[in-house]
Simulated scan of single mutants.
Amino acid sequence: MKVVSLSRDSEHRFSKETCDSLVFVKGLGIEGDAHCGVTVKHRSRVKADPTQPNLRQVHLVHSELIPELQNSGFKVEAGIICENVLTEGVDLLSLPRDTLVNLGSQVVLKVTGLRNPCAQLDNYQSGLTKAVLDRDEDGNLVRKAGIMAVVKEGGIVKVGDSISIKIPPEPHKALERV
């Protein structure tokens, strides 16, 4: 399990610029990223209530999603769907809420929920929103666009750093959109 790409953007644009390393700040998010802060920064959530806590400081996506989307004809690569951390070998969507994700030797993230795919995906490329949504065997909606987390311990993360996972004690709480 490892970090295969890192991205950030100081403005609220759809895609983020890839980089070799990121500075994670405890309780805030990623230094230099538009979503960094104690209170919510996502525009639609700011409009609803700008005082709510920022549960979306860091966006993680499993790298295995990229070739799946490419094989369906979408032009996507690292940073395109606004993720901060692209992981390899981690089943992010199956993690329970409050899971601790260790990136490298310093950074600890706490999983808060699922990213809810938004219309910006279709603004980038028609049909992309539908491509990151699926149904399980029971017909329940599956959001494949990654998970969100907050920074519990800060530090520097570099591409290639290892990832380790600490599942919280039971009973586990399923991920919901945040």
Rank of each mutant, 00 (worst) to 15 (best):
S7P: 07
R177V: 05
I80M: 07
V157C: 11
E170L: 12
P117W: 02
S94Y: 06
L133D: 00
T87Y: 01
Q52F: 08
G32Y: 06
Q57L: 08
N71D: 10
N123I: 11
L69Y: 02
C19Y: 05
E88K: 15
G27K: 10
K152V: 15
N54E: 03
R13F: 11
T112R: 06
R97L: 02
V40M: 05
D122K: 02
A34D: 08
H12G: 07
S105P: 11
V76L: 00
A34K: 08
T87A: 06
H172M: 08
D136N: 02
I81H: 05
P168C: 12
V151K: 14
A174H: 02
G113E: 06
V3R: 03
L100V: 10
D98H: 14
V3L: 08
E17T: 15
R115S: 02
P53R: 07
K75I: 09
H59D: 01
L103T: 05
L22V: 02
G139V: 00
I165P: 10
F24N: 05
E176A: 04
L100M: 11
V108W: 09
T112D: 01
S15P: 01
L95I: 08
R135Q: 10
V85R: 11
H59Y: 12
R177S: 10
E170D: 08
L69V: 04
G89R: 04
P53D: 10
L114D: 00
D136G: 01
H12T: 12
V61N: 04
D138M: 13
G139T: 00
P50M: 08
S72H: 10
D49A: 09
D9I: 07
